[in-house]
């Protein structure tokens, strides 16, 4: 799944003023009741929101730790904690191998995607050439192509190229998920680097390549981190291609490997939730990492508005 290119910058002030000018002279009263009631409402609302947002993750983790997971029923808190479910994931299942496969695939996707997308981003941000706009529009459109609908031709193509049952084949497909978004995002970062800094490097006699490495690269590094995390999460989470391409159980990635814990009639929920937790935790950590970047971005946006 590819993400949206970018949100439109909200033309806040103009629209807002227009809206403000329009019939707000209401004579309703009772606006200023910043009372205890509203504080209570905020506390209750916050608790309800947190509960709604976190409950599935909570249930996953606590089931994974519950010594009596299968018959947990409606116990909100496990009666006794155990690491046995996690241990079983690695001993009975082959989950260590699945994790390794996923790490290899995700890392390779991140590495290749970073290099390729940065080069392309420099091209569209720094150069003016024929078809530039056409390429930009194409990159935008391409993000909307449902890759799920292309699983059939990509499968047949991978078959011809002997790329089924191969981690490399999966990496290549995942590039299609992450490249358009990465190019589009990095383009913004590259464009934000002032031209003068580059000029200065040339003045000092640096070649283009040298300037690229010593000047441009460090400045767009935050953008690379963001797109890399996105690429990593996409590759780590992806299901449909991993399911279709990998028939050899030694090459399963985590999201497909998880299915091996489902029995025909009985499901080992303790182990399934333990394995799910192992898959989920790194993603949540990454999200919280970029949340800090995000909130600072929000703050600067607010100042600007």
């Amino acid at each position: 799944m590819t993400g949206p290119a970018a949100l439109p910058a909200v033309p806040a002030t103009r629209t807002a003023r227009r809206a403000a000018g329009r019939g707000l002279r209401s004579d309703e009263t009772g606006g200023r009741r910043e009372s205890r009631a509203s504080t209570v409402a905020k506390v209750v609302g916050s608790i309800a929101l947190v509960a709604f947002a976190v409950f599935p993750a909570y249930w996953m983790l606590t089931t994974a730790l519950d010594a009596d997971a299968a018959t947990r029923g409606s116990r909100l808190v496990p009666t006794s904690l155990t690491g046995e479910n996690f241990a079983r994931v690695f001993t009975d299942g082959d989950f260590g191998r699945f994790i390794l496969n996923s790490v290899v695939v995700a890392t390779a996707t991140v590495a290749i995607s970073a290099v390729v997308s940065l080069l392309a981003a420099v091209a569209v941000a720094r150069f003016r050439f024929r078809f530039r706009t056409a390429i930009l529009v194409m990159i935008l459109i391409v993000q909307m192509v449902p890759l799920e609908a292309l699983v059939i031709p990509l499968f047949l193509q991978a078959r011809t190229l002997q790329m089924l049952n191969s981690l490399l084949g999966l990496v290549i497909v995942y590039l299609a998920f992450s490249l358009p978004f990465a190019i589009w995002t990095l383009r913004g970062f590259v464009a934000a680097v002032p031209q003068e800094i580059e000029e200065a490097a040339y003045m000092d006699g640096a070649s283009w390549g040298r300037m690229f490495r010593s000047v441009l690269l460090p400045l767009v590094a935050p953008g690379l981190v963001a797109t890399s995390i996105f690429a990593f999460i996409t590759a780590w989470n992806e299901f449909i291609f991993a399911l279709t391409f990998m028939q050899d159980s030694e090459l399963y990635t985590v999201s497909v490997g998880l299915r091996t814990f489902f029995g025909q009639n009985t499901n080992d929920w303790g182990a399934i939730m333990a394995a799910s937790s192992i898959i989920t935790v790194p993603v949540v950590v990454f999200f919280v990492l970029i949340q800090r970047r995000m909130t600072s971005g929000l703050a600067s946006g607010a100042v600007k508005g």
Binding site: M1, P4, Q195, V225, N237, G297
Partner: peptide, 27 residues
């Protein structure tokens, strides 16, 4: 599918989305 993971990263983009900065002057 990770329907919307992209959009977290998206907020890390600089708030401005400037147009191209053509190298015409230098060229």
């Amino acid at each position: 599918m990770s329907s919307s993971t992209a959009d977290v990263a998206q907020h890390a983009t600089p708030p401005t989305t400037p147009g191209p900065t053509p190298a015409r002057r230098g060229a």
